[in-house]
Design a protein around this nucleic acid. Structure first.
Length: 606
DNA sequence: TCCAGGGGCGCG
DNA sequence: AAAGCGCGCCCCTGGA
């Protein structure tokens, strides 16, 4: 069953006339008042399946939320797939009202996938000019206070954020049609359906992670900072350790006015002092023997900690013992998640010490081992590469099979093949890799050639790469013009190859992101099933004492769980990884082992 | 005074 | 050691 949380009559009557697009005169003889929420019940094929459920507006603050929550909780018994414009606009409020849903169809995210997929490209719907649905952006959590002021007007007001003409029922039916007629690969429809479901589940997970929050001990974080930088300074003053290092740097370079935060200034000062570098990058400085190098490298390290994850970050992002990441599902072209603030995906290892489970709880940390090479083996149906990864370390498996001499070589060779490395050791290893794993190498090489030709590539489940942009077009036409110079041609070649490296990597990174979504989706369901009989407890509703996801990082997750359930959670993490592999690659036998660690602090996971 | 772009570095 | 891919965030700079 599909339940479209949808035809919402405007909460602001003056905003637009009250003419709900999905109003059905047969069941609604009277137009409901402004601010009414409507749940449209449909069968899986999109046909009507029952009378609409209306949620009246009004009452005190939060009253309508509470009524909606009751309606949703009721309907959950029938396990509907909730269909809505956009998870970021609905789900945080349902969670705040204590309600979890099992599954959803996020029309905004699904549309982005389906409009761009090579498997739906022949449909008229995909060919339409961009419209208001395409302009719909996710709602940043900053715009929705987690805890609204008690006297705030708290009606659900989607029309303020979503143009009223965006009829979710019509959009859903269009998407179901396009899904049914997808073609271009065996099972194209089923794969795209899986992708839409997984992407939508990801949207639920992202909202739930933000709702629950990553347990964060601000005192531990402050101790890390004080230990590294000295006591917290007044606003606008360098911490003591940084200032002391700045003095040493100025002395070593004989540059009393040097501001080490300015790269150009620093580079000039290095030049005057006779330090042979062309940049101030860490790796270049490390190759130089000069008294300035040690304090400068130390300064850069601490400066980064201070600016990116210092006291200001702590003030801005950690409240009530929780860091709430602003994930942006599908925010990266390849389908990976991005973040819109707080830098949750760049959490330095050095501050992970501050991620500490609640008393009586543990963090169960899981990491998919060599995810991308395994995905490549599955994509290419490369039996030998799959065999190398069976059971254990894929790189060591390659050594044991005699393909390369050392684990390090295996890693460099594989990464080089996936990223398009053309220099150094990865270039040297290339022929050996191609000889041992011809199918895998052929797949990424073909993806690169497709990109170089200006064409698109597609992941296992149907996410399709963007077309090359203006720069690529310009360099192509420029290079073949009569007046083209050698420099034009060289620039065109550089641009073309860069795009080839992008499409080469897109198929692997994008399919790995799909694997991760399937992992999350399965995990989410199975963790919920571990709920103890009395689930009320430490975590905010609807989690209570149920293990739940609190962090995600491309191929790694952190689950916050009551200590007694740690082993069950570990088992679920492994089973879910295996299930994700089956969802993507069916019976083709490629293993997806995960390393699991049960810890008090995230820093102890590795 | 504002903002785009570059340098640099954190993560996978 | 980085390289080859994908990001976000910080600061500074220089032009409008």
């Amino acid at each position: 069953m599909l339940a479209v949380l949808a035809a919402v009559t405007p909460a602001v009557p003056s905003f637009t006339p009250v003419t709900p697009a999905a109003a059905n005169p047969a069941t609604d003889p009277q137009t409901p008042p402004p601010g009414t929420l409507r749940v449209v019940l449909l069968s899986d094929d999109g046909t009507a399946a029952g009378p609409d459920v209306l949620v009246a507006p009004g009452g005190g603050p939060g009253d309508q939320d509470a009524r909606l929550a009751a309606v949703v909780r009721d309907l959950e018994a029938d396990r509907p797939r909730w269909v809505w414009h956009d998870t970021t606009r609905w789900y945080p409020r349902l969670l705040a009202a204590g309600v979890r849903v099992e599954r959803c169809h996020d029309l905004r995210l699904a549309r982005r996938i389906l409009r761009a997929s090579a498997w739906t490209a022949r449909s008229a719907w995909a060919a339409q000019e961009p419209g208001p649905w395409d302009a719909l952006e996710p709602l940043l959590p900053d715009a929705v206070p987690a805890t609204p002021a008690p006297d705030a007007l708290f009606d659900i007001d989607v029309p303020r954020d979503v143009p009223a003409e965006l009829d979710p029922v019509a959009e859903l039916r269009a998407q179901l049609d396009v899904l049914a007629t997808a073609s271009g690969e065996p099972g194209a429809s089923a794969r795209l359906r899986l992708l839409v479901a997984a992407e939508s589940a990801g949207a639920l997970v992202a909202a739930e992670i933000r709702h629950a929050g990553l347990p964060w001990d601000a005192a531990v974080h402050d101790a890390i900072l004080t230990d590294a930088l000295g006591p917290r300074p007044r606003l606008g003053v360098r911490p003591a350790r940084l200032e002391a290092l700045a003095v040493r740097i100025r002395d070593a370079l004989d540059a009393p006015d040097l501001n080490p935060d300015s790269a150009p200034h620093l580079l000039r000062a290095l030049g005057y002092a006779g330090v042979p570098v062309t940049s101030t990058r860490q790796w270049e400085l490390e190759s130089v023997d000069h008294p300035v190098v040690a304090p400068l490298l130390e300064y850069k390290k601490l400066y980064r900690l201070y600016t990116a994850n210092g006291w200001s970050w702590l003030d801005a992002w950690v409240h009530d013992g929780r860091f709430r990441p602003d994930y942006v599902v599908g925010g990266v072209v390849t389908g990976r998640w991005a973040t819109s603030g707080g830098g949750a995906l760049q959490l330095p290892h050095g501050v992970r010490r501050a991620v500490v489970a609640d008393p009586g709880w543990v963090l169960v940390v899981a990491d998919a081992a060599q995810l991308e090479p395994r995905v490549l083996a599955g994509l290419a149906h490369d039996e030998r590469m799959a065999r190398a990864g069976r059971g254990g370390d894929l790189y060591q498996g390659m050594v044991d099979a005699g393909a390369v001499a050392t684990r390090d070589e295996a890693k460099i060779g594989v990464l080089g093949a996936m990223y398009g490395g053309t220099t150094g050791q990865s270039a040297v290893l290339r022929p050996r890799l191609a000889a041992a794993y011809p199918d895998a190498v052929a797949l990424v090489d073909a993806a690169a050639r497709t990109g170089e030709a200006g064409d698109v590539v597609t992941t296992r489940l149907g996410r399709t790469s963007p077309r090359p942009g203006d720069e690529w077009q310009a360099s192509q036409s420029g290079a073949f013009d009569e007046s083209a110079t050698a420099a034009d041609e060289s620039r065109a070649r550089t641009t073309t190859r860069a795009w080839g490296r992008f499409t080469r990597n897109f198929v692997v990174q994008g399919t790995a992101a799909e694997w991760a979504l399937c992992w999350l989706a399965t995990l989410r369901g199975r963790l919920h099933a571990l709920a103890p009989a009395d689930a009320a407890g430490a975590a905010p509703a609807p989690f209570g004492r149920t293990p739940h996801l609190v962090y995600f990082l491309h191929d790694e997750v952190v689950v916050h769980a009551p200590a007694a359930l740690a082993d069950d959670v570990a088992a679920v993490l492994r089973e879910s990884a295996a299930e994700a592999g089956r969802l993507l690659f069916g019976a083709f036998g490629v293993d997806f082992p995960v390393t699991v660690a049960t810890v008090e602090s995230y820093a102890d996971a590795k």
